[in-house]
């Protein structure tokens, strides 16, 4: 039942992705108003699936790789819905939509039935750590989408081509401001996520930090975003460079997420939290 729900969710996300992309690429094909509604529908179904899984595993559902992907997609879709309520951002949806769909599809493909969840994971600090860290990642996902659109818009404005599409995309100023806002929200969330992770580790293994691969990669990501934010605030790093670095930062983030889950690296995070 819950896996069926996840499949329907993925289908809804696919539809939303197509509906976001269509009006940007070919105006007049579909109204730009439909896509957010379809995405919201997918998000509602997804919420039910996540709740279902939470009850089944007895804690926040990131105990294996598939759950992690699904949880990440869920938060990304949710934070985009919050963001686009205030600004017209169909173009950004054209990146977020496909991203959320791919994550959910991967979650469907790697779906496993609930196994015995180790008592280790029943600690109350786990939901705090995981929710904060994943929410930070989701907001960085939005920053990534905004930055992709920034680079596309920048490139088109410079090349003098495709003026019709230039006029359909948001302004550089707005995209740059959104990039900053996403970083300014994502960074504290990630920081708190790492700290609460340390507290969780204290409770379970008695050590705040144990230099395992996942922790090192998190630290790398954290330093990258810290530098980006720092240069934005003090050295006037803006526009194209800020967008490019945001994209690289998200690439590192995704790579670290995938590597600890797919490569045989030792540690508490490897192969999902549960194994």
């Amino acid at each position: 039942m819950e896996s069926t729900l996840l499949q329907i969710t993925a289908t809804a996300y696919l539809a939303a992705a197509a509906l976001f992309v269509a009006p940007v690429v070919r105006p007049g094909t579909v109204s730009a108003r439909i896509a957010p509604a379809v995405l919201a529908l997918g998000f509602t179904l997804h919420t039910m699936a996540v709740l279902w899984r939470t009850i089944a595993v007895g804690t926040v559902p990131v105990t294996d790789f598939g759950e992690g992907l699904s949880f990440f997609a869920w938060l990304t879709a949710g934070s985009f819905l919050v963001l686009q309520r205030r600004t017209r951002l169909s173009a950004v949806g054209a990146v977020v939509g496909p991203l959320v769909f791919v994550l959910t599809l991967a979650a469907v493909l790697t779906y496993k039935h609930v196994e015995n969840v180790p008592t280790l994971l029943q600690n109350p600090w786990l939901p705090v750590h995981v929710t904060l860290a994943f929410l930070g990642n989701a907001v960085f996902g939005l920053a990534f989408a905004v930055s992709v659109i920034y680079l596309v818009q920048e490139r088109m404005l410079k090349s003098h081509r495709n003026a019709q599409m230039i006029l359909r995309l948001p302004s550089l100023e707005q995209l740059d401001r959104l990039n900053y806002r996403c970083l300014a929200w994502g960074f504290p969330l990630l920081t708190l996520g790492i700290i609460s992770g340390g507290v969780f580790a204290m409770h379970t293994s008695g050590r705040f930090w144990s230099w395992e691969p996942r922790e090192l990669l998190s630290l790398l990501t954290w330093m990258l975003y810290a530098g980006l934010l720092q240069f934005r605030l003090t050295a006037g790093l803006r526009g194209r460079r800020a967008a490019a670095l945001t994209i690289i930062g998200f690439g590192v983030l995704v790579a670290s997420f995938l590597s600890v889950n797919l490569l045989p690296l030792a540690g508490r995070h490897g192969g999902g939290l549960g194994s």
């Binding site: 818009q153 404005l157 003026a163 230039i166 006029l167 302004s171 550089l172 100023e173 707005q174 401001r177």
Partner: peptide, 8 residues
């Protein structure tokens, strides 16, 4: 119109 795609 183009100016408004650079500046909000």
């Amino acid at each position: 119109d183009l100016a408004k795609r650079i500046f909000e």
